[in-house]
């Protein structure tokens, strides 16, 4: 039996790699993939808790996370397409209209 801590470690590592990619990459599509990476890291820990606490609610929550991730991917990629149509770049440091 694999201890639950191993799953949590893996989840933390995947989440941190996602955070690092989100903060450091310039390409907006890879930034989006980093968000998916973070969601997957959280999903691993939710399913692990669901298994070890013998409760189905963790898996239900993962189902909803996947549904929201699908919606987020559709909206985000539509935003990327309209952004690329206006600016013809996918680098986030070239996009500074809002002076953030």
């Amino acid at each position: 039996m694999v201890p639950i801590q191993w799953y949590l470690w893996l989840s933390v590592i995947v989440f941190s790699i996602g955070v690092f990619g989100f903060l450091s990459r310039r390409n907006i599509i890879v930034i989006f993939m980093s968000i998916e990476l973070m969601l997957n890291g959280v999903n691993i820990s939710l399913v692990a808790f669901s298994h070890y606490l013998q409760d189905m609610r963790g898996q239900i929550l993962v189902f909803f996370v996947i549904a929201v991730a699908a919606a987020e991917a559709a909206i985000g990629l539509a935003i990327i397409i309209s952004l690329f149509r206006n600016k013809a770049t996918a680098h986030v440091d070239d996009i500074d209209e809002m002076k953030g």
Binding site: S16, I17, V19, F20, L23, S24, R25, R26, N27, V30, H91, V92, D93
Partner: peptide, 15 residues
């Protein structure tokens, strides 16, 4: 171009 932005080190430390 370069794939990573200038805040590479800050991002690594934060993660």
């Amino acid at each position: 171009g370069r794939p990573f932005s200038r805040i590479f080190v800050i991002a690594l430390v934060l993660a």
